[in-house]
Design a binder for these strands. Structure first.
Length: 779
DNA sequence: TCTGCTTACACGTTTGAACCGC
DNA sequence: AGCGGTTCAAACGTGTAAGCAG
């Protein structure tokens, strides 16, 4: 199908071999995967390689102005978010559940795009589960190598992306800082926010022309090595097909396990009983009461071990739903597509042949289809109205707080689960108590916070998959489709987003308020939503407050938090700096990464700074939050591994005065960020952080401004119009040390010289690629 | 002692090879 | 020989619990 030969400069690791061969099963025209490694510059590529993919229409017609992304399994995410999503991270890497499944629209069907997933810290705090809630207990750990998961299909045409569900379920999370598998490295007990970036790319070497970044506040999660919240465990067990064994009717359910345990005890005791019967033995070994008790327990356990009848009160049958979902002919994700980093050869061919739509679904594709269906069984369908009504996982009403009590379905664990010593914030109430929110939001934080991106939202239409299923979680003001666009400042991976990230409340509200009457999509969306059982006509903030993506169980350290209404406008980029227990947040958001091993001009993986508006010829991943203080960066990254040449920094050192102080909310508890979020996360909208002007404090965003924003991607060639991609070629990007942790190859000098292929446990599953955007060597 | 992490374990799912029949 | 369906086992994903370390 494709060949690495097309990119002689790319040397792929063994995993790549497998992948390539695997992927080439239906493409016998496979060529050498390992051409002699050599430094290569894009211009060294044969012209045919540089040629843009065949386009049926001029690139100038690219409808970049309306790129939207919808979180397809938003309902499931919201369910988890309402409780406080926890993600297990292990040394070997653990998949995310729920996974990220989204739908893209608004792409130019003919242009190619690369989809990236990165996960950035939400704040600079470390959390602990106490009293039934999450509480910030200190500063975050030192930042870890920034890695980006490249969707296996990348690059693919807009038609490809838009024609199916996009899933990142192959992405794995690990806490192994020395991970060499390419998994995304995260710290345990930290809060993170996944982000998805859609980057226009003519080929792997020439990204540019447009970048859109999306954030779904409901997908933020806390990393753990073991689940802390029983509710989360319950949700995962019920929703994840792989955990069926732990369901109440499964053989690995607690009852069954207890029964087995009892049996084991019984097996051990029975011989003893026999021994006991030995007249030579005394009764001291096994008192009679013990035996009788065991028998009674066994009897009870035997009953318990019987197949459980479905609880009539629980209409939600995960197993049924899951299987059914697997049969749902939803647009499967074609992961068989070559992906940029790990499938450079594929890319090359795809570029040359323009076979972006992957007409032939290869094995990988089918595998992924299955995996998609398996890993995330169309949760959207799991939460159909009927199910929602009877489900034990009712969609947490957004108007409800994130407390456990918000889950109406009787849950055995609900009672057993420790209740927060401090009740979780009732998000809606907070929002409702913030009458000034909307009005204040009009004065977008952008105006007061240099680092804050102007944010605007397009109001998405409900995801097709959800079209038939009401969105019980959505309030009247929450667009069912979690799609909207914002333009937060650019950031680098792991640049901490604000702890209250999900709560660009003021901004969101502002955008909502501003556009709700103007945006046709919003109008279309909001109306049906209001008519779907959600009290309409009530425009009170409380009604518009969806529950929120406050971290449900994050308990306020401040016993007397300032009411949200009294809080300054929520600053999207606001760090809870004033209350940070750690003077030097280790999660400093490095927006530029120095790579001493490469030429100076190539050493920095930089991200355009919103504040300065500077663009750096590198991949720009918008920062959702503030600029980390330089000191923290220095502390987190020893000069030996991380250098930040001031002169080359695309972002000026963090200026507390401009970011923190101006937007700071001194009285806001660090672990209170979600209150902000609640006020803003009215609809769990995805946040397109890259499709809008980076920083324009004065002018509010308008729908028409939600455009392809070239400034977010470096324009390497100044002569190239930023708004109009070249019809034929994209300028080659300068080298920026993004690393795909698959197979380090120092000889590569191309921008993606560090592309590695993820080890696939000996299998050739193209599970995606990881770009390490940090400079820390992991090998 | 507490907290958090690692690891072994059991279970369910996925996947592909092996087998069989047509 | 080729094709399609079924069976089976290995690999993998998952949560749990015990053990360990700080």
């Amino acid at each position: 199908m494709l060949s690495v030969e097309m990119y002689p400069g790319l040397t792929l690791g063994p995993q790549r071999i497998g992948d390539c061969f695997y992927r080439d099963r239906e493409a016998p025209a496979h060529m050498s995967l390992f051409p002699p490694a050599c430094d290569m510059v894009p211009k060294a590529l044969p012209p045919r390689l540089l040629a843009p993919p065949p386009v049926s229409e001029p690139a100038t017609k690219t409808p970049k102005d309306d790129v939207r992304m919808e979180l397809e399994n938003s309902s499931l995410w919201k369910q988890f978010s309402s409780v406080g999503t926890e993600m297990i991270i292990t040394k070997k890497g653990r998949r995310m559940f729920p996974g990220l499944r989204m739908k893209l629209s608004g792409l130019n069907p003919s242009l190619r795009y690369i989809l990236l997933l990165d996960i950035v810290p939400l704040d600079n705090s470390r959390y602990r589960f106490q009293g039934g809630g999450w509480q910030a207990i200190g500063g975050a750990e030192a930042r870890l190598p920034d890695r980006v998961f490249i969707h296996p299909d990348s690059p693919a045409t807009g038609a490809h992306w838009q024609g199916r569900t996009i899933s990142f379920h192959y992405c794995k999370l690990t806490n192994n800082t020395l991970d060499s598998q390419g998994h995304i490295i995260l710290h345990s007990l930290h809060r993170y926010q996944p982000r998805v970036h859609v980057i226009e790319a003519r080929d792997v070497l020439r990204w540019g022309g447009g970048q859109h970044s999306f954030v779904f506040p409901e997908t933020q999660f806390l990393t753990v090595t073991a689940y802390q919240n029983n509710k989360i465990t319950e949700l995962k067990i019920r929703a994840n097909p792989f955990a069926k064994g732990f369901r109440e009717d499964g053989m690995n359910s607690k009852k069954q396990r207890d029964a087995r345990q009892k049996r084991k005890i019984s097996d051990l005791t029975e011989p003893l009983d026999i021994v006991n019967c030995d007249p030579c033995d005394s009764d001291e070994l096994l008192p009679l009461p013990t035996s009788s008790t065991t028998a009674a327990d066994l009897q009870a356990l035997a009953l318990a071990s019987l197949p459980q009848l479905t609880d009539p009160s629980c209409g939600y049958r995960p197993q049924e739903a899951s299987y059914q979902d697997t049969l749902v002919p939803e647009q499967p994700l074609d992961l068989g597509q070559a992906f940029m980093a790990s499938h450079m050869s594929d890319i090359g061919i795809s570029m040359a042949n323009g076979m972006q739509d992957a007409p032939g679904r290869d094995v990988t594709n089918s595998i992924n289809e299955r995996s998609d269906a398996m890993g995330e069984p169309a949760y959207t369908s799991n939460f159909t109205p009927a199910q929602a009504n009877s489900s034990s996982f009712p969609s947490a009403p957004l108007s409800h707080s994130s407390s456990f009590s918000s889950l109406p379905i009787p849950d055995p664990l609900a009672t057993s689960a420790p209740q927060p010593s401090i009740p979780p914030f009732d998000y809606p109430s907070i929002l409702s108590s913030s009458p000034t929110l909307h009005s204040s939001s009009s004065s977008s934080p952008v105006s007061t916070t240099p680092s804050l991106q102007q944010t605007t939202f397009t109001f998405p239409t409900p995801p097709p998959s959800n079209s038939s299923s009401p969105q019980p979680l959505l309030s009247s003001s929450s667009p069912s489709a979690n799609t909207y666009h914002t333009i937060p400042e650019t950031i680098g991976p792991h640049t901490p987003t604000d702890a209250s990230f999900p709560a660009p409340s003021s901004v969101c509200q502002s955008g909502l308020q501003h556009q709700i009457s103007t945006h046709p999509v919003l109008t279309q969306t909001s109306q049906p939503l209001q008519g779907e059982g959600i009290p309409s006509g009530n425009n009170s903030p409380s009604d518009q407050s969806p529950a929120a993506f406050i971290y449900p169980n994050i308990l306020p350290t401040n016993p007397d938090p300032v009411p949200i209404a009294a809080q300054p406008l929520f600053n999207y980029n606001q760090p809870p700096a004033p209350t940070l227990p750690c003077p030097l947040p280790s999660h400093g958001g490095a927006t530029s990464f120095a790579f001493p091993s490469v030429p100076h001009h190539m050493q920095n993986l930089s991200f355009s700074n919103v504040s300065t508006g500077q663009a750096h010829p590198g991949l720009h991943l918008q920062n959702l939050s503030y600029q980390a203080p330089a000191p923290s960066l220095a502390a987190a990254f020893p000069p030996s591994s991380f250098s930040y040449p001031p002169s080359s920094l695309p972002h000026p050192p963090f200026q507390p005065s401009s970011s923190f102080q101006q937007s700071s909310q001194p009285s806001y508890p660090q672990n209170f960020p979600n209150a902000h979020a609640s006020a803003c996360a009215s609809s769990y909208p995805s946040v397109d952080i890259g499709s809008m002007p980076q920083f324009n404090p004065s002018a509010p965003y308008r729908p028409e401004m939600v455009l392809h924003h070239p400034s977010l991607l470096p324009q390497l060639d100044p002569s190239l119009p930023s708004s109009t991609p070249p019809p034929a070629l994209y300028p080659p990007f300068p080298s920026y040390p993004m690393r795909l942790y698959q197979d380090p190859h120092s000889s590569l000098s191309i921008p993606l010289r560090h592309l590695y292929r993820q080890h696939q446990h000996g299998h050739a599953h193209p599970q995606g690629s990881y770009l390490d955007m940090g400079a820390r060597p992991v090998f």
